[in-house]
Amino acid sequence: MTISDGKDELYDLNELYKQGAVERSPVSIDKKIIKLAEANIANASESEKKYAPRQKLNSLARITSVAAVMVLSIYVFFDIRDEIQYEPMLEESYDLSSDAMSEESVSLAPDEVELSFKSSAPSAEVFEQERAAIKLEVRKEKKVKEKKVKEKQSAQKKSVQRESKPYLAPKRQKLMEPIQALSPATEPLELNKLQYIRDLVAKNEKEKALELLQEFVRQNPEYQLPDDLLFYLKKNDIK
């Protein structure tokens, strides 16, 4: 112990305590505990074998979903960029055609001007109509794309929410039951707390999430963390 007893104290408590501390844990209990430890190791290796392919699948699914999100975001980025460039180009092309028209009209003789004016009048109308039609089409396309993007984003959100729901494997659930029954002091709202931590991770507030998770583990060392949070804690705890 770091704090020593004062020198003026009448009795050396440390010495007296050591002298009296002769109780030993019974051998029968020792054996039981060692057996339990062995059984736990055996169970762990069995479940590891059982869940190993599933874990691989899970990690593959995670990688795939991340890749999909990246591809989607790149696609959306370029799509928006194209749309931004599209409208000025339309107006530019219109300007160019009108410029060409005016040059054409200048180069013609006065008689021909009237003729050309007469002939160009319907073409201008047609052009206006075409332009309006194109604009309408562009707007429709834009709306459709926006709708698609929104749908994709909402689908993504849903999938993230689905992933972040607490999942306890049946075996773990069974494992938790005696603990839940035995430890009312350590139990209330643990799943909510873990969910909150998951939400923080999803919001990219990693430091706060890690801090909370460490505190949670410190407060409830006996609690079996879900695989995702355990992985997260182990990954970030190396620092």
Partner: peptide, 12 residues
């Protein structure tokens, strides 16, 4: 001790 054993996998 039983809790210690069960929590071994998650011990950091």
């Amino acid at each position: 001790w039983s809790r210690i054993i069960k929590s071994a996998q998650s011990y950091l």
